[in-house]
């Protein structure tokens, strides 16, 4: 069986419907909600706050701690055992590395900024949704940032190049590759690049450009969500 149509009917280069909201968690210093199709991510940021245990403190800079967690009922198939596992630990780590280049932590020596990413529902692309939500939450928390980070997954299914894969596409029987990307908006630098599956170098080069364009669309959604929360301020009648 060859792959020539997407299950949800969208074009090969279309993204799933996106939705973003900022400031959804009252008690957090900053928070965001990001939905991409059936993948839903919440991110909450706490801090900068005092880092305990103290031996982990770094006098030169603050540190960023990310925690990625899928809720037990969030998966497509079976119940996920709560608490961390090897996969979530790895994704927490790559999330941190994806965000680190933009967060200006040297403003907060000896302190920590905590980012908690919770996924109540997932359908592929959860680390990308997590990173996108986390970038929004960090901005909402007022942590100084050089830029925003937008993430999106691309891949090759059978012989087609796709943007923003669904679970069914990732699970296609045949040659599949799934490549999550994160881009720093202004410079276009890549801060996350992982891959599952097999791909030829020609397709990979094409996919980088496709991912860049797709991440730009994610960025627009992020920007809109951030301005949405604070727009009351900018309607031209604010402080003197």
């Amino acid at each position: 069986m060859s792959f020539d149509k997407r299950i949800d009917g969208r074009g090969f280069l279309d993204l799933r419907p996106m939705e973003a909201k900022v400031g959804v968690i009252e008690k957090a210093d900053g928070s965001a909600y990001f939905r991409m199709g059936d993948t839903v991510a919440y991110a909450a940021v706490y801090g900068p706050r005092e880092l305990v245990p103290r031996f982990k403190q770094n006098p030169k800079t603050g540190i960023l701690r990310c925690n990625y967690n899928m809720l037990p009922f969030s998966g497509v198939g079976e119940r996920i055992r709560p608490g961390g596992n090897r996969r979530s630990k790895e994704i927490s780590m790559v999330t941190e590395k994806a965000l680190l280049p933009v967060v200006l932590l040297d403003h907060f020596p000896n302190s920590v900024v905590d980012v908690f990413i919770e996924l109540p529902q997932t359908d592929a692309g959860s680390r990308c949704a997590g990173i996108t939500a986390a970038a929004l939450a960090l901005a909402d928390a007022g942590i100084p940032m050089k830029d925003l980070v937008s993430a999106v997954a691309v891949g090759k299914v059978d012989d087609k190049l796709l943007v923003d894969l669904r679970y069914e596409e990732e699970a296609f029987e045949g040659e599949v590759s799934d490549i999550p990307f994160a881009f720093i908006h202004n410079t276009g630098e890549i801060s996350l690049l992982q891959m599952d599956g097999i791909i030829d170098d020609e397709s990979l080069i094409k996919l980088v450009d496709l991912a860049r364009d797709a991440a730009e669309k994610v960025y627009e959604v992020q920007k809109k969500a951030l301005l949405e929360k604070f727009k009351k301020v900018g309607d031209g009648n604010e402080r003197k």
């Binding site: 210093d29 900068p48 901005a139 909402d140 928390a141 050089k146 830029d147 604070f230 604010e238 402080r239």
Partner: peptide, 24 residues
């Protein structure tokens, strides 16, 4: 010149200032 935070821009001749709207 870029902004570091969500904030309001104040342009005063050649000085560009961003006043933060959130943060601790």
């Amino acid at each position: 010149i870029y902004s570091k935070r969500i904030g309001l821009v104040e342009i005063n001749k050649r000085v560009i200032k961003v006043i933060p709207l959130s943060g601790s």
